[in-house]
């Protein structure tokens, strides 16, 4: 069981109160691979911080595995593994010592942790790097070491905060494989990401959040189904977009059009057929396109329609 209640957190800085999370109400059942998707600053890391007892919520409640994070942080820590956004291994220790000492902090004797540590390193394909100093490991290897560390005490729930940021594409794919197999073993995984593809491919269910608010919550397939009709066309114009808005909006096949500054955002069925008509409408409004970007219906287009901005 891994329900997480509605955490709410606000931090004050310089007399100005910033609400990082605002009535975010979520529950994650055991065994689920759950994704928190949102742009930088959406409140993802704060949410993970609250659930992993490292950020104190100013109001609301949050529970992990049925345990309240404020009332019993020790009980929560016993049951979770955390992979941070930036690898933070103990640099004074070798790779395998990182795992052995971390296990010892959980009261696990070396006779148990040593074979487990070696098995984890093998599973994460860094089995030959156990005796290496942390600095000698690549970014991807360090991130895998962080995953091994998060698993050494066999937690019920694994938290990953943007685990693939800064990894090259190959390392990212390898990490996806690892996460998939951990999920298949029945582990509950809660991951934050701002990569649509990652969320789409890995997660059972996704929460799209921005400015600490829950915008959408569903399976990736159903979320994509909710993306507004058709292809997203983002057109940069040589002038104010508002003038062209009316003309473009009345083009047959266009389901939705909005403008901000020089940016025109249009949703259209069958973009190939609609685009020439849109261009003619622009011409009539005395506007020329500087750049045109087409995106088929996806989490990306859903996100833009929900927040009015792109993810990355």
């Amino acid at each position: 069981m891994a329900p997480s209640g509605p955490p709410s957190h606000s931090a004050s800085s310089g007399g100005r109160e910033i609400q990082a999370l605002d009535g975010l109400d979520l529950a994650v059942p055991a065994g689920e691979f759950f994704g928190l998707l949102g742009p930088n600053g959406a409140g993802k890391t704060t949410t993970i911080g609250v659930l992993t007892t490292r950020v104190r919520p100013t109001s609301g409640t949050a529970a992990v595995a049925g345990i309240d994070v404020v009332r019993d942080p020790v009980g929560v820590k016993q049951r979770i593994g955390v992979v941070p956004q930036r690898p933070n291994p103990d640099r004074q220790l070798t790779a395998i010592q990182n795992l052995l000492f971390h296990a010892a902090y959980f009261g696990i004797p070396r006779s148990v942790s040593l074979p487990r540590a070696q098995a984890l390193l093998d599973q994460l394909e860094i089995g030959d790097r156990g005796e290496s100093k942390v600095e000698q490991l690549s970014g991807g290897q360090q991130q895998r070491l962080m995953i091994a560390r998060a698993l050494i005490h066999e937690p019920e729930i694994l938290f990953l905060d943007e685990p693939t940021v800064g990894l090259d594409p190959q390392a990212r794919l390898a990490l996806w494989e690892i996460l998939r197999s951990l999920h298949q073993q029945g582990r509950t995984i809660i991951m934050t990401t701002h990569y649509m593809e990652e969320a789409d491919r890995l997660c059972d269910r996704l929460a799209i959040i921005d400015h600490g608010k829950l915008l959408a919550l569903d399976t990736p397939a159903r979320l994509k189904g909710r993306a507004p009709g058709g292809t997203l066309l983002q057109i940069t114009l040589d002038g104010e977009a508002l003038q062209a808005l009316q003309g473009v909006g009345s083009v047959p096949g266009v389901t939705k059009a909005s403008g901000q500054g020089n940016e025109l955002t249009v949703y259209a069925e069958r973009a190939g057929e609609t685009l020439p008509a849109i261009l003619r409408a622009l011409e009539q409004a005395d506007r020329a396109p500087v750049d045109i970007r087409l995106t088929p219906p996806s989490l990306e287009t859903l996100f833009v329609s929900l927040t009015g901005r792109k993810l990355e």
């Binding site: 490292r54 020790v74 941070p84 933070n88 640099r91 990182n98 902090y105 560390r149």
Partner: peptide
């Protein structure tokens, strides 16, 4: 900046 102490802050103790 190193944030290395995090692995100890995750230990199940106050």
């Amino acid at each position: 900046w190193t944030l290395e102490i995090e692995d100890r802050l995750l230990a199940p103790v106050p």
